[in-house]
Simulated scan of single mutants.
Amino acid sequence: MGYETIKLEREGKVGILSFNRPQALNALNTQMAREILAALEELEQDDEIFAAVLTAEGEKAFCVGADLKERKDMSKQEMKKQRELFVKAFTAVAMFKKPLVAAVNGYALGGGCEFALACDFIVASEKAVFGLPEVGLAIIPGGGGTQLLPRLIGRARAKELIFTGRRIDAREAYRLGLVNYVVLPEELRKKTMEIMAEIVQNGPIALQQAKRAINYGLELDLHTALALEAECYNVCLATEDRDEGLRAFNEKRKPVYKNR
């Protein structure tokens, strides 16, 4: 499928989805939301892709949230339909079954910040700026921000950032635990792909089940969460990849996993 507002690449076992509206600071419009959904589905269905990166084209912004210029002439009904589509796009990022890492350079504001938060973790350049400024427009974060940010940095700190709409730089984001790494802008892709190389050398089904166990288990009581972990483990146990991993260990070689 051809894409206009995003770019989809494959580098070995890694899919790279880039927002591609740099002239608009990668603001999210209707077409971009549709293409994000299509690209994520494409990557989920591709057995050769073990994990993915969400990033952006351009030097100024990862994504500055919704394209308000597109919205200015919309009717209430049109805006409601667009909003439903946007929620699907945010949810698709949050529920992507394979590991998904955000590589953020420049502004990640509003929905852009929420896209990054919905990923498994964030690698940021020193030029990254994060913020959820929605209350300044008399709305609230609606792409998962009110739920994802407190889970990541704690309730009180998240409330402060959301209530004030304050922007924070990459170093402050690192201090708060919002991002895992801060690197020079020119090192962002290299660092991200080094991490991805570590991830995709492992069993793809195991990666998916580990993500499932963590994401769902954290919302459960410990007893139920341990039962979920056991279920996820058993999924891995029944795979050919698990047999290959065991053979490779005993034969003192690197395993060749095939996602089955």
Results as ranks from 00 to 15, higher is better:
52 A>I: 13
52 A>D: 10
112 G>H: 08
130 F>Y: 12
141 P>R: 00
61 A>C: 03
119 C>Y: 03
55 T>F: 04
135 V>G: 00
109 L>K: 00
45 Q>P: 00
148 L>V: 09
108 A>H: 07
129 V>C: 02
102 A>H: 12
108 A>N: 11
50 F>K: 10
146 T>D: 02
47 D>V: 15
128 A>K: 10
134 E>V: 04
92 A>K: 14
55 T>N: 07
82 Q>T: 12
113 C>R: 00
72 K>C: 12
133 P>T: 10
154 G>V: 07
98 K>T: 07
78 E>M: 09
124 A>N: 06
61 A>L: 04
96 F>W: 12
142 G>V: 01
97 K>W: 05
117 L>V: 04
57 E>L: 05
135 V>M: 08
115 F>D: 02
53 V>M: 08
56 A>I: 06
46 D>H: 06
123 V>I: 15
102 A>L: 11
136 G>I: 11
68 L>W: 13
42 E>V: 13
76 K>V: 15
126 E>C: 11
153 I>L: 03
57 E>V: 11
156 A>Y: 06
49 I>M: 08
77 Q>C: 00
97 K>Q: 12
80 K>C: 05
140 I>M: 14
137 L>F: 14
92 A>H: 01
100 L>Q: 02
45 Q>A: 15
111 G>Y: 08
78 E>H: 09
149 L>N: 01
69 K>D: 12
75 S>A: 11
53 V>N: 04
121 F>T: 07
117 L>E: 08
66 A>F: 05
55 T>L: 06
121 F>H: 03
117 L>H: 01
124 A>I: 07
119 C>I: 04
135 V>H: 05
148 L>R: 14
78 E>N: 11
71 R>T: 13
47 D>S: 15
149 L>D: 00
143 G>I: 12
68 L>C: 04
59 E>W: 08
107 Y>A: 10
100 L>H: 03
115 F>H: 11
89 A>H: 03
121 F>A: 01
132 L>A: 06
116 A>M: 08
109 L>Y: 05
135 V>I: 15
60 K>P: 00
99 P>R: 07
55 T>D: 12
65 G>R: 01
153 I>V: 15
66 A>L: 13
141 P>E: 13
109 L>H: 01
86 F>D: 13
97 K>I: 12
70 E>M: 14
53 V>W: 05
49 I>V: 15
95 M>N: 01
159 K>W: 02
120 D>P: 02
150 P>M: 06
114 E>L: 07
99 P>N: 06
145 G>P: 06
62 F>V: 05
76 K>A: 15
